[in-house]
Every structure is written in structure tokens, then in C-alpha cells.
Nucleic acid binder design. Structure first.
Length: 377
RNA sequence: GGGCGAAUUCCCGAGUGGCCAAAGGGGGCAGACUGUAAAUCUGCUAGCGAUGCUUUCGAUGGUUCAAAUCCAUCUUCGCCCA
């Protein structure tokens, strides 16, 4: 399945083969929570922005429009007309982000729908069933993502429960994959390491889940309130204890700098709402730093967002035009920014892979960080 | 020609003697956002030597300790009658 092709320091070049095609790593997955990348980006657009993997969400698709219907329609790939691998998050993050609307129990989590308030129960088996119905390429284990600042007394039992849930996830997906009615009987399962910022809990948990022989391992519960230094420290400590012959996924991260630092610590998979959400809010990434296109200084700026960018947006449109569209609240403005940002991220991942292949990742990272942290914008 | 009504800070609009530099929108300016309850949220939006001072509610003059608010005249804009 996963092939580690080359190491450059701790940075890894690899390939994960799936039934929906190969994934060259390190990779940034483009977030399409509710079955679409927000900003009117279609699966056709993925070709022009170099997307390899799409990420969707168990909870959101279950609540609307329903995983059973999606299965009936042939699965999420068919529904979205997506020809690339799709990873589905398990709903574990919603245990964190919908904290005010849920109650955690041993059997699972009781949510109140953020749409209409009705009660929803989701445990490991439910999450696996939903993800199986969606037929995603990679399913994530159902975990609890506790807040970064939670104390030891909260984290320890939470992590232990996440471990018990992982066993239930594995058993359930094994059962589901064996049924002849399954949309994607080759669905992969990634487990998730937790432990807050407590390295001893993290390491112990990493060792435990390493024995589950999963298809990949994620580090979750980061970038949820702790500092960058704390996050990097956790990675330094935990990544070495995860199976090195499997892909390693840092969930929900992050900024371009975060990604460069995490690749340098052995991480292969990433996802983050930043490029899409920030794009919708007019903030775009360039090789000369971040830029808020809503700023007045771009009103007469007829240059493309990034002079060296080859994305569909930069090939045709100016900062002034996009600023105008954003001000006029035209959907096209959001779309152009999202396309640019995703292209920027995906392009950076290509550069990262090229650098690792060439054995000069450290040098590449140093130069890239210099560029993207420039304040000239 | 006569009658009635209205004029508020960039715009709309509340306020009808002191708690008013003046609600609330909009617009403008800036910031935030990390497995997306997020095309969302937050802050600022008369000026300044700034826990105070100055100028401001169509204009001018007046009443009052105190006026965006009361009075007079004027100007402009609506509506109605001729």
C-alpha cells in the first residue's frame, strides 16, 4: 500500500496506492467538508490546481444529505464526480468544534444537530458505517479531539477511551469491508494519536495504536489552542513512535510554515481549512508573504496576486479586479482566491517532494520560509 | 399664491431640553480564522497636545444654568389645495 521512497533527514517521500489512484506524499488534502470545496470549486477544478486528495466529513454528510442516500446513489465519489482519493474525517473533530452541542459517553457521542437541533448519536461503529456508506478511500477512526489546554486529568481517560474506540473502529471496518454490498470494500483506516501536549501520554498512545496494524497514523488534537512551539515539540517526540512504514498525517494543520516544519519532522499528510476559508475572506498566500486583497492598497493594483504563480486566477486576473469582486460580494471573487490558495498549497507540496527527491529539503525549507514570512505584502 | 410636513455625523435613519460626539443599519478602514455550525466573527469610523478639550444635528438670531431637541426668520426639498 504505502511505499517510503526516500528520506531526507526526517522528511519523507512516499506513495500511497489506493483504489482511487496513487497519492504522492507529502501531500496536502483539499478540504471539502460537505462534499464540496467551499467557494464554488468543483471536482473539475481539481485538475488545474493540482489537487491529489479531497477531504470530506462524516458528521456533515450524515446530517445532510445522509450517508444512506449517498450509498444508494453509488457513493461519494460518484455523487461528487470525484476521480481522486477522498479521505473522510470521522466526526471526531466535531466532538471538539461542536462542544456546546454534545455529550461524550463510553459508547460514543450524543450530538445535537447544528442544523435543526435533533439528537444524533455517533460512536465508533456509527462513524465507520457512515464512512463505509460514503465509500471514501480512507476512513478516519472515531476519536475525541480534546482542547489543547485540557489538563492531564482530562486527557488521560479521554485518550484511553479513544484507544478503546479505535479497536471498535477496526473491528467494524473489517466487518463492513467484507460485505458484498460495500461501496468501497478496500476502504483504508487511519488511527489517531491523542494526548494533548503531554508527551508521555502521546508516546504511550502512539506505541499502543502502532500495534493495531492500521493503514496510516494521524496525529490529532494539535493546532487547537497550543503554541507552535508546543506543537512542534509534540511532533518531535511522537512521530518517531509511529510506524515508519505507514503514512503519518498531521490533522488540521496548517499554515505553510507549519507544514514545512512538520514535513521536516516526518509528516506525510496534511489538511487545513486555511487556504479555502482564508481565501473566502480575501487573504491569499504568495511567495512574498500573505496578502489581504480587501486592503485599500490593492484597489489600483493590476498585477496578479503572485507574479510567479501559474494558477488559473493569476494567469488571468488582477488584484484590483479580485478586490472589486470581493467588495461587491461576487462569488467569483471567493472562488478565484480559493483556487489560488489551494494551488499555492498544492504547488508547495510539489516543491517539497521535489526537494526531498533531490535531497535538499532543508535548503528548500529555509528559502521558502524566508519568502512566505516576508512582510512586504 | 395658500396649507401642511421634512432637513441629524460618508449614506439611510433613531433621538424631541441635561445620561448626546449623538442608537441601529449600510458603507468605509483594519484585524482574526489551523481534522469548516465560518461568503463568518471582532474592532475602529468628527478633530485634537486626548480619563480632557474643540467643532458638529440645513442657515442665522434668540430663550435657558444647559438646545439636535423650544421660539423667530430665512433656505432647500416633499405632499396637498388653488
Amino acid at each position: 500500500m504505502y511505499k517510503l521512497l526516500k528520506k531526507d533527514g526526517s522528511a519523507r517521500r512516499g506513495r500511497l496506492n489506493t483504489v482511487h489512484g496513487g497519492i504522492e506524499t507529502p501531500v496536502f488534502m483539499n478540504v471539502a467538508t460537505a462534499g464540496a470545496i467551499k467557494g464554488a470549486v468543483s471536482c473539475d477544478d481539481l485538475e488545474t490546481i493540482n489537487t491529489q486528495v479531497v477531504l470530506s466529513n462524516t458528521y456533515h454528510l450524515h446530517v445532510r444529505t445522509g450517508d444512506k442516500l449517498i450509498k444508494e446513489l453509488g457513493g461519494l465519489h460518484r455523487l461528487m464526480n470525484c476521480k481522486r482519493p477522498i479521505l473522510t474525517d470521522s466526526g471526531g473533530f466535531q466532538v471538539f468544534s461542536l462542544a456546546s452541542l454534545r455529550k461524550i459517553k463510553e459508547e460514543g457521542v450524543y450530538f445535537r444537530s447544528h442544523i435543526d437541533g435533533h439528537k444524533i448519536f455517533m460512536g465508533p461503529e456509527e462513524s465507520m458505517n457512515i464512512q463505509s456508506n460514503l465509500g471514501s478511500t480512507i476512513a478516519m477512526a472515531f476519536d475525541e479531539c480534546p482542547p489543547a489546554l485540557a489538563d492531564r486529568a482530562y486527557i488521560k481517560p479521554s485518550v484511553d477511551r479513544t484507544t478503546r474506540w479505535l479497536l471498535r473502529c477496526k473491528n467494524e471496518i473489517t466487518r463492513l469491508n467484507s460485505l458484498d454490498t460495500t461501496v468501497n470494500p478496500n476502504q483504508l483506516l487511519f488511527g489517531i494519536n491523542q494526548g494533548g501536549i503531554f508527551n508521555d501520554i502521546r508516546i504511550e498512545h502512539a506505541k499502543t495504536i502502532s500495534e493495531f496494524e492500521l493503514d496510516g497514523y494521524a496525529v490529532g488534537g494539535l493546532a487547537v489552542g497550543e503554541s507552535h512551539e508546543q506543537m512542534y515539540d509534540v511532533l518531535d517526540n511522537v512521530v518517531p513512535y509511529l510506524p515508519q512504514n505507514k503514512p503519518i498525517y498531521l490533522m488540521g494543520v496548517g499554515t505553510p510554515s507549519n507544514i514545512l516544519e512538520a514535513v521536516d519532522r516526518g509528516v506525510d499528510f496534511f489538511d487545513c481549512v486555511y487556504p479555502s476559508r482564508n481565501g473566502r475572506h480575501g487573504q491569499v498566500y504568495t511567495n512574498a508573504g500573505k496578502m489581504n486583497l480587501l486592503n485599500e492598497k490593492f484597489a489600483k493594483d493590476m498585477r496578479p496576486i503572485d507574479e510567479v504563480c501559474t494558477c488559473p486566477t493569476c494567469r488571468s486576473y488582477s488584484r484590483a479586479y479580485i478586490r472589486h469582486l470581493l467588495k461587491a460580494k461576487e462569488m467569483l471573487g471567493l472562488r478565484l482566491c480559493v483556487l489560488h490558495n489551494l494551488h499555492f498549497y498544492n504547488e508547495m507540496m510539489t516543491e517539497i517532494r521535489t526537494a526531498i527527491d533531490a535531497g535538499n529539503f532543508k535548503e528548500y525549507k529555509r528559502k521558502k520560509l524566508e519568502k512566505i514570512n516576508m512582510k512586504s505584502c
